[in-house]
């Protein structure tokens, strides 16, 4: 893996927590939530689903991100730096306000 591939892998890894947080925020805001004290847990584990969807999105973003790294390494570096901060803030905010 070359250095430009690293500039694609980093934002792709940051897609995982960002996509996870967005999915959970969507659930809390737009999907009816059952009280965990009243409803027994469903057979499908939402956390694993969210993580799986986020991982699939991250994998899917690798191609375009790699192309960006080839075309404009400076832009790929800026995206890598920004994606770390944005995804961390997004996940922290989601964990705080929409557990």
């Amino acid at each position: 893996m070359g250095p430009r591939a690293a500039l694609a892998v980093i934002p792709a890894l940051c897609v995982v927590p960002a996509a996870y947080a967005i999915q959970r925020l969507y659930e809390v805001l737009f999907v009816v939530q059952f009280d965990p004290a009243q409803a027994p847990p469903s057979p499908s584990i939402a956390l694993f689903w969210r993580a799986g969807v986020a991982a699939a999105l991250a994998f899917g973003s690798l191609g375009p991100l790699f192309q960006l790294g080839e075309r404009s390494p400076a832009a790929a570096m800026r995206l890598a730096e920004a994606s770390l901060i944005v995804s961390a803030v997004l996940l922290a905010a989601q964990a705080l306000v929409a557990p």
């Binding site: 995804s87 961390a88 922290a92 964990a95 705080l96 557990p99």
Partner: peptide
């Protein structure tokens, strides 16, 4: 506990970001 699970996803992803970088 739910908050902990969400943040744990971030710990895993950001540790790998650190390693790759």
């Amino acid at each position: 506990f739910e908050r902990k699970e969400h943040l744990a996803i971030g710990v895993l992803a950001f540790a790998w970001v650190g390693l790759v970088a």
